[in-house]
Amino acid sequence: MIAGTSAARDRRSPAEKPTLKAEQIYEVLRHAIVRLRMEPGSVISEKELCLAYGVSRTPVREALKRLADEDLVDVFPHSGTYVSKISFEVAEEGFVIRRALEIESIRRAVAYATDEDIRRLERLIGEMRDILERGALHEYIEVDDAFHAAIAGISRYPRIWKFINLVKAHLDRMRQLSAPLPGHLAEVTEQHAAIVRALGRRNADQAELAMKIHLESSFAVMSAMYEDGRYFRRKEV
């Protein structure tokens, strides 16, 4: 359901309501697509969305247009709307951008990290280990993102993570697919721990290397899944 009290809705002007609804629908759908709760290739029914959210087609179409602009939805006139298959090329581009920004972020974080910052990162790693023990792998990516966002915050460039989020949607779908691979997330967790140890030593070169190893090895694991035609588009020539 869309969040918000009746009183809050009543205070909005008629012109504001469709925009707000569209924003909320966009956020809910984007999260579902990125987390693979809506599988690549699955049909999206405008009518069902209108009924689910109690809105007209206008905000639904606005939300779908934004998703189409991000290449997360394919709209075929007179045919239908579908969750897009994962584009390896778009995911790879997101990885390249993310690697460049996170390497800059981790080097700056070394200069500003406090002991409390280190403890906060260690607590997040503790959460990751707890998730692995419980086998709740669907929860891992949220804590993983919180870890990287925290490093961006420590670097005093918090908007770095906001920008990364904009370009890593296809990459995130690959991350979600790779989560169940035996031992993968355990290795990722230890890589996170290596990053924090380097931060704790205030060693920028070690921290950069640990981050680079983490991002590149994770992408290598994800890239090996490309042949799964159920989820991926054919590579563009």
Rank of each mutant, 00 (worst) to 15 (best):
R233T: 11
E208Q: 13
S217R: 10
R230K: 05
I213A: 14
A193D: 14
A220G: 12
H192Y: 15
S218V: 04
A194K: 00
D228Q: 13
R201A: 07
Q191V: 05
R197F: 09
D228C: 13
H214I: 06
I195H: 01
A210R: 02
K212A: 12
S218F: 04
E208W: 08
L185H: 04
F219W: 06
M211V: 08
M222R: 08
Y226L: 15
V188N: 01
E187M: 12
R234Q: 13
R233P: 03
Y231Q: 02
E216T: 08
A207E: 03
A220D: 14
N203G: 09
Y226F: 14
F232K: 03
L185W: 05
A186I: 11
R201L: 01
R233Y: 09
E227K: 15
R230I: 02
A224E: 06
Q191C: 06
E190H: 14
L215K: 00
A224V: 04
A198K: 01
A210C: 04
A204W: 09
R201G: 03
M222I: 10
I195L: 03
D205L: 04
E208G: 10
E187F: 10
S223P: 08
M225W: 15
T189R: 07
K212P: 14
L215A: 01
R230L: 03
F219L: 05
S217H: 08
Q191G: 07
E190P: 15
M225S: 15
Y226H: 14
R202Q: 12
H214L: 06
V188T: 06
M211R: 12
R234I: 11
R197I: 09
A204L: 11
T189S: 12
A224Q: 09
H214C: 06
R230G: 01
V196P: 00
V221Q: 05
A220N: 14
A186R: 12
Y226R: 15
A207L: 10
D228W: 14
A198M: 00
E208Y: 08
A224R: 06
G229C: 08
